[in-house]
Design a protein around this nucleic acid. Structure first.
Length: 502
RNA sequence: GCGAGUGUAGCUCAGGGGUAGAGCAUAACCUUGCCAAGGUUGGGGCCGAGAGUUCGAAUCUCUUCACUCGCUCCA
């Protein structure tokens, strides 16, 4: 990251805090790593992005390649599911082994793959070895480091059986000094909890690490209740949790985050057609929100980097300041095959196949998954909107697309006198049912414009003496700072046109 | 997790073993009011937390927490 871009991120983070977009979670307690709270404006922004996605997916889905609207329904599944779900998805198992790090050699060991020789007489250090270590090399090492003691002078134990308090006396497998091993840690990315009052392994449960599982679990329920036919989609927006080793880059990688996921179910032979369709649709989505094509990058994920279930994935990447001049992931569009339905069918014992009456055949649909980080989208919108302009008092403004801006307009009486304030209040009341608008009366007009610039309000309506004479107001455009006069009774139509384009 | 750096007001920062500072923000009031204007007044911090050294610590030492960067991790 260049210094300039480092500063840019710092400026963005501090603006977000100063103006009430995003705060550190538990701020007054010193924060908690990897968690963030959304303030008044950040919440509006996030809701705008979420609502727009929901609208474009579920309320008014795109027109398909054949010219007719496609079919998508929405669900909202539980964050905690039966733990078997995560065994089926592959999230539990294989990654549950406690690991031990060596501070000196920088190596990482599975605790059950390391054994320890503890001196029978309790004198001197204990020695750790890789489980495959041969007697010959063990003796050699002991001769060197343990004053010619031999294997017979030691008890052998697996490292995961030894209390962490005793680690200080252990010399790691690849070093010559004691006390460099960390205590064993689980490296599972899932947060776990216990369902019910007693905390035991039998009622251990997990917070979902991705929202898509809830969609697969409800595939049959939706099929049975919604009259949908393949191809169709199920959409969901919600929180997901991953115990990231290193949360980084503001809200980009956090431990609690929000996803907007669509699972598109189709026949295997139609996969290429729909894959291209969704890449195009999702690209258009970001373009329509003001992310320019030049700041987007499409990464056809190389075979060796693909998840085990995916045969093709395209990452839609955005040039986040911390990644610039490179890009980082904003959305992934993955062909998941029928891996998920296959797994859940096997683990649950429920038949999850689809019967196509016209073709008279039964099959497990393939899945194309456009999966977006809602909170990453919010960050992309903020980064893209952040515009330095030394020619204006605020020095910076947020160039949000009007439909994304947390406040659509501010209503500003030129003075705090009743003859300006009263018409302003009237205008405010007539707009607030339909638009998120601010009524700001106090302080001089320049300061109020500047404040709206900084939070990205696209329009300011000012009530002045002319308003009293001819029922017109001035509209100030955020980006150009230019003003025009429009009739009071055209304000609503003006906003509708600017925000919805109609 | 490892290594380096940082932590002082809402934000950005200065200072530095002896009574906590600036700019901006924020609140109130004034004005013949269109771009952070001028004026007056106010609120806000025991200097990230804990321990130690000292007559005395925001300042020095240690521990811890958080953040930033690099590595690692991101199935």
């Amino acid at each position: 990251m260049s210094d300039q871009m480092k500063d840019r991120m710092k400026d963005i983070v501090s603006l977000c805090k100063r103006r009430g977009f995003i705060f550190a979670a538990s701020d007054i307690y010193g924060g908690i790593n990897g968690f963030w709270d959304y303030g008044p404006l950040g919440t509006e922004l996030k809701n705008n992005l979420r609502d727009r996605w929901w609208h474009d997916m579920v309320i008014a889905p795109p027109i398909g390649p054949d010219g007719t609207p496609i079919s998508i329904v929405g669900i909202d599944s539980s964050i905690i599911q039966n733990p078997k779900c995560w065994e089926a998805s592959g999230h539990v198992g294989g990654f549950n082994d406690p690991m031990v790090d060596c501070r000196e050699s920088k190596k990482r060991y599975r605790a059950d793959h390391v054994f320890v020789l503890t001196p029978k007489d309790g004198q001197g250090h204990a020695f750790a070895f890789d489980k495959d270590a041969q007697n010959e090399e063990i003796e050699k090492r002991l001769k060197k480091l343990a004053k010619n003691k031999s294997i017979n002078d030691f008890d052998r134990e697996s490292l995961d059986q030894i209390p962490a308090a005793d680690f200080l006396n252990i010399i790691g497998p690849d070093v010559k000094m004691a006390g460099t091993l960390t205590e064993p840690r689980q490296f599972n990315m899932m947060f776990h909890t216990y369902v019910g009052a007693t905390a035991g392994d039998e009622n251990k449960a997990y917070l979902r690490p991705e929202t898509c599982a809830g969609i697969f679990l409800n595939f049959k329920n939706v099929l049975d209740s919604s009259r949908v036919k393949v191809p169709f989609g199920i959409a969901q927006v919600g929180k997901a949790f991953r115990n990231e080793v290193t949360p980084r880059n503001f809200i980009f990688r956090s431990r609690e985050f929000e996803q907007m996921e669509l699972e598109w179910f189709c026949a295997e032979e139609d996969v290429p057609k729909w894959f291209d369709f969704w890449v195009e649709q999702r690209t258009n989505f970001w373009l329509s929100l003001g992310i320019p094509k030049s700041e987007l990058h499409f990464l056809d994920v190389p075979k060796e980097d693909l998840s085990h279930y995916s045969s093709r994935t395209i990452d839609v990447e955005y040039r986040f300041p911390f990644a610039a001049p490179d890009f980082d992931e904003l959305e992934g569009i993955a062909h998941r095959g029928n891996y998920d339905l296959t797994q859940h069918q096997e683990f649950s014992g429920e038949k999850l196949s689809y019967f196509d009456q016209q073709e008279n055949k039964r099959f497990l649909p393939h899945v194309i998954e456009p999966s977006t980080g809602l909170t990453r989208g919010v960050l992309a919108l903020i980064c893209q909107a952040y515009t330095v302009d030394e020619n204006r008092p605020s020095g910076v403004y947020l160039d949000f697309h009007p439909s994304m801006a947390p406040k659509k307009a501010a209503i500003l009486p030129l003075t705090a006198k009743p003859h300006h304030v009263e018409p302003a209040q009237k205008l405010y009341m007539s707009l607030r049912d339909e638009f998120v608008v601010d009524l700001d009366i106090k302080q001089n007009i320049g300061k109020r414009y500047a404040r709206q610039d900084e939070i990205g309000t696209p329009y300011c309506f000012t009530i002045d003496n002319e308003t009293l004479e001819d029922h017109s107001v001035t509209v100030r455009d955020r980006n150009t700072m230019a003003q025009e006069r429009i009739p009071l009774d055209k304000v609503k139509a003006f906003l509708r046109e600017k925000i919805h384009g109609k």
